[in-house]
Deep mutational scan, measured.
Amino acid sequence: MADQLTEEQIAEFKEAFSLFDKDGDGTITTKELGTVMRSLGQNPTEAELQDMINEVDADGNGTIDFPEFLTMMARKMKDTDSEEEIREAFRVFDKDGNGYISAAELRHVMTNLGEKLTDEEVDEMIREADIDGDGQVNYEEFVQMMTAK
């Protein structure tokens, strides 16, 4: 299944994987998964984290390695993001709930994920998604960005 991913997608997933893999040992533990999910405003229980890991832990060693992570991402993409997942993601970014993602809100979430971005990089990300040019990202623009192939 992971063989249907483009090189660009694999590179993006590698970057995402390293955000989860806090200690850089090449595997994601339940603790690391929990840290990232909490930084995104989720509050999973230990059991939920274990279930999430077990779902993709092909070799049964209790952690997720990069090939397992790729399989999980490929699977998720095949079920292409349901509207509800996209709306949920939008809410994570839209901290003040005004229906727009500002540069400050984007920077806040990315920083929580451990991504240190310059102001230019954040502005560039907003510009790429900002179709109507108002300097922020509304829900429609967010959907376009998330579903762009």
Rank of each mutant, 00 (worst) to 15 (best):
Y100K: 04
G133K: 09
I86D: 14
E32H: 15
G135W: 02
D51K: 03
V122M: 14
K78P: 00
N43G: 06
Y139S: 04
G62V: 10
H108C: 03
N61R: 03
M37G: 00
D59N: 12
T147F: 04
E121K: 08
R127V: 05
L70S: 13
S18M: 07
S82G: 14
E48L: 08
I86M: 00
P44K: 06
E115I: 01
E68L: 00
Y100I: 07
Q144D: 05
E85N: 10
A103I: 10
F20I: 11
I64D: 06
D3L: 08
H108Q: 12
T29L: 04
G41C: 09
L113A: 02
G41T: 07
S82A: 15
E7G: 13
K14H: 02
I53R: 13
G114V: 05
A16Y: 10
N54Q: 05
M73A: 13
A104L: 05
A89T: 07
E68R: 00
E8L: 15
H108S: 12
T27S: 11
M1S: 08
L117K: 01
E7I: 15
V109E: 01
L40A: 15
M72A: 02
G99Q: 02
E32I: 08
E121M: 01
F93N: 06
R91S: 02
Q50T: 05
M110A: 12
T111F: 06
A103R: 13
T118A: 13
D81V: 14
M77P: 08
R127C: 01
K116M: 08
K31M: 09
R91T: 06
G97F: 03
V56A: 12
V143K: 15
N54G: 02
N61C: 06
N54R: 05
D59F: 12
N98A: 10
M52V: 11
D51L: 02
V137R: 06
A11P: 02
G114F: 03
L106K: 02
K95C: 15
K149A: 10
S82W: 07
A104G: 12
G97E: 13
G135E: 11
E121V: 09
A16R: 04
E46D: 09
G133E: 12
R107H: 12
K116G: 15
K76W: 14
G24W: 09
A16N: 00
A103S: 11
F93E: 06
E121W: 01
I28A: 03
V92P: 07
K149F: 07
E12Y: 02
K76M: 03
K14M: 06
E140S: 07
G62N: 02
P44V: 15
T118L: 08
F142S: 00
T63C: 03
D65N: 14
A58H: 09
F17S: 08
I131P: 01
E32A: 14
R127A: 01
L49M: 09
E88S: 06
G26H: 03
E141K: 06
I10C: 15
T63R: 10
K78F: 00
K22S: 11
A89F: 15
K76G: 01
S39C: 10
T45W: 07
T63H: 03
E83C: 01
K78T: 10
L49F: 12
E83W: 11
T147A: 12
T80H: 07
M72I: 11
K22F: 06
E85W: 00
V143G: 08
K116Y: 04
A103D: 11
E12G: 11
E84R: 11
D132P: 00
M1Q: 08
S102Q: 09
E46V: 11
T111K: 05
D130V: 12
K95T: 04
E83S: 00
A89P: 00
K76D: 08
Y100T: 02
D25Q: 06
E7F: 12
T45D: 00
N54Y: 13
F69C: 02
G135N: 05
D94M: 02
A58F: 04
G26E: 03
E84A: 15
N61K: 08
L49T: 02
E140K: 11
I126Q: 01
T118Y: 13
F93Q: 07
F20A: 01
Y100F: 09
L5I: 03
G24T: 09
M77N: 04
D65Y: 14
N112P: 09
E120A: 15
T30C: 01
V122G: 12
F66R: 05
D3N: 10
G24R: 11
Q4S: 09
R107I: 01
T147C: 07
G135M: 03
E124H: 05
D94S: 00
A11W: 07
F17D: 05
I86W: 06
I64A: 09
A16W: 11
L117P: 09
R38K: 11
D119T: 15
G97Y: 00
G99S: 14
S18Y: 10
S18E: 04
F142A: 04
I10E: 09
N138S: 14
G41A: 13
E8V: 12
K78L: 01
A148C: 05
A129C: 02
A74D: 08
E55C: 03
I86H: 08
I126K: 00
G99P: 00
G133S: 02
E128T: 05
E46S: 03
E12R: 02
L106G: 06
Q50H: 11
S39P: 13
I53F: 12
Q136L: 11
V122H: 06
T29A: 12
P44G: 02
P67Y: 00
D96I: 02
K22Y: 05
M110K: 06
G34N: 04
N61T: 03
S82R: 12
E124C: 15
M52Q: 01
S39L: 14
Q4V: 06
N138I: 13
M77R: 13
T27N: 13
E85F: 02
G133Q: 10
A47M: 15
V92D: 04
F13C: 11
F66K: 06
L49V: 14
A104F: 01
D59P: 07
D59L: 12
